[in-house]
Amino acid sequence: MSLNIVNVEKRYLNRASGTTINALNGVSIKVEVGQTLGIVGESGCGKSTLARAVVGLEVPSAGSITWDGKVIDNKAKDRLKSHHSQVQLVFQDPYSSLNPRQQIENSIAEAIEVHGLVAKDKITDRVTELLVMVGLDPDLRNRYPHQLSGGQRQRVCIARALSAEPKLLVLDEPVSALDVSVRAEVMNLLIDLRKNLGLTYIFISHDLAMIRYISDVIAVMYLGKIVEFGTWEEIIENPVHPYTKALIAAMPDHSIIGDPTMLARTLEGEVPDPVNLPSGCSFHSRCALAVPSCSIIAPTLREISNGHLVACSEV
C-alpha cells in the first residue's frame, strides 16, 4: 500500500484579475505505508495545497493522486468516501477546526455514527477509547471547544481524525499554532500514535526542526515544485540544493548562542510571484550558483546518491 502522487499540478484562476496562480507545478512523490514524509517550504510553496489535494479537498488540474491504487477523483462518490475514511487531515488551527456548537463527544462520534464503524451501543466506549488514546481525560467529553486549551483542542482534532480509522494522516502544521511549551507533548503523541496504530504520516511544516524530528524522508518545496528529496539524515546533514542549504542556515537555532555571524544573510530577495513563474529554474533569481542557462532550462529531479534527489543543474 502506498500513496502515489504523480505529476500533480494545481492552478487557480482569479476571475477578478484574469490571472492564474500556479500553486503546484508538477509534483511527483511516493509515500510507502508506515513511512513519514516531511514536506518543508515557505509560504506559497504549495505544501498546503498538496495536503488538501491528497485528502480530496482540491482536485488537481493535472496529474493523479492514488492511495492503495485507487484514484482520488471527485466524480466517483463512493471511491471518494472510502478514500476519505482512509486518509484524514489535521489542520493547523485547532480554534477553527472544531465546530463551536458541537460537544467534544459528538465531534468525535459523528464519523463513527455516519459510517457505522462500530455498533451503536459501543460508540460511547469508542469515544472514551479515542480520548484516552490522545491523552485526554474522558470527562472532557461534554465540553465545548471554547472550554479547552489549544493543545487539548488539537488532541480532539487528532482523535476525530482517528475516529475514521485512517491509514494515512496528513498533518498540516499541527503544532505551529500551539504554545511552545505544549508543542513537545503533541509531537510525542503523534510519534506514539504512529507506532501504536501503524500510521503513515505526511507532516507539513515551515519549521525544519520539527520536520527533522519526525520525518523518515523529507521533501523540500519551492514555488510548487519539489527541489530536493531524501532521507532526513541526507537532507539535514548533506543538503545539496542551494535553497535547502539556505533554509537550514536560516533555521533559528538555540544551540549556537551569542554569535552575531549566525545572522549573516543567507538568501537575498523574496519568493517570486506564483502568477508569473520565472522561466527555467524557479529559484534562479535568488540563487548564488545560478548560471545563464538556469533561467532557460528547468532542472528536473535527478538521483545523486541512493534515494537522494535534487532538481539543480549546478550541483
Binding site: L57, H84, Q88, S96, L98, N99, E110, A111, V114, H115
Partner: peptide
C-alpha cells in the same frame, strides 16, 4: 470555508448533514 466544515467533507459526510 471554516476548517471544521472542510473536515466534515474529508470525513465523507453528506451535504444535507
Amino acid at each position: 470555508e471554516m476548517d471544521y466544515v472542510k473536515v466534515t467533507r474529508i470525513l465523507g459526510f453528506s451535504s444535507l448533514r
